[in-house]
Design a protein around this nucleic acid. Structure first.
Length: 426
DNA sequence: CATCCACTGGAAGATATGGCGA
DNA sequence: TCGCCATATCTTCCAGTGGATG
């Protein structure tokens, strides 16, 4: 009957458990907020901003704290007429080179002011730069020009900057733009990174300037995660919908793994959803979120991540995954790369496509490995130097994901053969 | 211990794609 | 359209590497 009014046994406001949700107060990151603010203090005095490098693992609040502190800063700055502060924030997730960072910065600056405006106004995009085609010098010149036009104090925030890998030219150029290109602006760069290694690998000349100030974000402790979760659940869930120990378990799982609040929250949300589903199905309004729900949520989330990871595999990545999966279906894993490659070649040729050379195929296997779809097995004690791989996910998940990808015709046929294999061997 | 086997993974060059300006 | 430009993806080449073997 009332199909749609049952949705709220447990979850009151789902948005609050969204990974993107930014809470008003950041009780558990006080140290970082204060330290952050101290580095930005010169701005309020009208001085040149410090360059700042921030690092710490994912999901421990680097971006949230940054946004929070910047918000406060912008508010404070309004009191002073003599400070014209412009903040440019760029998430570098999809930028693999300095060139692209420069392009995106230009586009970010040229974005229409009206923040709230939906992504419709194509007409105003005439000045947007595309991602290739220009000389890099040209792009940098455009960038300097735009920075000059902005004027005042400019703070450039480069989130997830580690994505640019070894190509740190932009990090060298930006802090020097003022002197080398005669910009009459006060310019500060804030680099945010998940990857400690990235900082070490920066060229010396970049390290000198960009890292003139730097600090870590510590992973959350279990107790801190508990506080965060408690606070969130107060408004996100209805009262008394959790069995005792649920928050503790979510926190402990996340703290042991990554110390990530994002992970803890995601886990709690998934648990709540599982419980809610069960409540609806069993028509039991008294259903509580239990530790069992949390444990199920853990596996559920893992599965989701893998399927997600498989989504953007290239065609060869999928063929290779198919090859490994078929070995797995035969109970013949771990397999060494040599045999994987042989089977992969057969599969590809069978569908009159051209297989990659050995080296290229190995790169795809490594990618599968990095995405935790496949894992390499310790081969110590065996002859020679080689790798062995097995699925890092349930065979069913892999097959499911391959099936879900039936948009590609050739793969569809391949999937059928794989299924036959499965049937034969199980 | 020297040497070999079978494989790994870095580096550089080739190719294909998509975009710019003239 | 042509000559450039940046980039992703492959191929080619090859210097290691770990254990086995004599």
């Amino acid at each position: 009957m009332a199909l749609f009014d049952r949705e709220d046994y447990i979850i009151r406001n789902r948005d609050i458990l969204d990974p993107e949700y930014e809470p008003e107060d950041l009780d558990e990151r006080e140290r970082e907020v204060n330290e952050y603010a101290s580095y930005l203090r010169p701005i309020i005095k009208g001085w040149n901003p410090n360059n700042l490098f921030i690092y710490g693992d994912t999901g421990i609040g680097k971006t949230v704290v940054t946004r929070y502190v910047i918000r406060e800063l912008l508010e404070s700055v309004e009191q002073y007429d003599d400070i014209d502060l412009n903040v440019i924030e760029l998430n570098c997730t999809n930028t693999s080179t300095s060139y692209q960072v420069a392009v995106h910065l230009v586009n970010e600056i040229r974005k229409p002011d009206s923040e709230k405006e939906p992504l419709t106004t194509v007409s105003s995009e005439r000045d947007v730069l595309s991602e290739t085609g220009y000389q890099s010098k040209r792009v940098f010149n455009e960038l300097y020009k735009d920075l000059r036009d902005l004027g005042g104090t400019i703070l450039i925030i480069l989130d997830e900057i580690d994505n640019i890998g070894n190509d740190d030219e932009v990090l060298y150029e930006l802090p020097r733009a003022r002197t080398h290109h005669n910009l009459d602006v006060k310019l500060g760069v804030i680099g945010i990174s998940n990857d400690y290694q990235f900082r070490k690998n920066l060229s010396a000349k970049v390290k000198d300037t960009l890292c003139e100030e730097e600090f870590y974000f510590e992973p959350y402790e279990s107790a801190e995660l508990q506080n965060i979760l408690r606070k969130r659940t107060e408004s996100a869930l209805f009262p008394d919908t959790m069995d005792s120990g649920v928050i503790e378990l979510c926190s402990a799982k996340a703290a042991n793994d990554s110390g990530s609040a994002r992970q803890a929250i995601r886990l709690l949300r998934k648990s709540a959803e599982l419980a809610e589903r069960e409540a609806i199905n069993s028509n039991n309004p008294d259903m509580l979120i239990t530790e069992t729900h949390v444990r199920n949520a853990v596996t559920e989330i893992q599965k989701e991540e893998v399927v997600e990871g498989m989504h953007d595999l290239t065609i060869h990545g999928k063929y290779l995954l198919l090859a490994i999966t078929s070995f797995a279906a035969e109970g013949d894993t771990p397999v060494r790369t040599r045999r994987i490659y042989e089977r992969y070649t057969n599969l590809v040729e069978q569908f009159s496509s051209k297989p990659l050379k050995r080296r290229g195929a190995h790169d795809h296997i490594s990618k599968l490995n990095m995405k935790s779809i496949v894992r390499d097995v310790d081969t110590k004690g065996e002859r020679g130097n080689f790798n062995k791989y097995e699925l890092d996910v349930a065979v069913e998940s892999a097959i499911e994901a391959l099936e879900a990808d039936s948009t590609i015709g050739e793969l569809t046929k391949l999937r059928e053969t794989a299924e036959q294999n499965n049937v034969i061997s199980t």
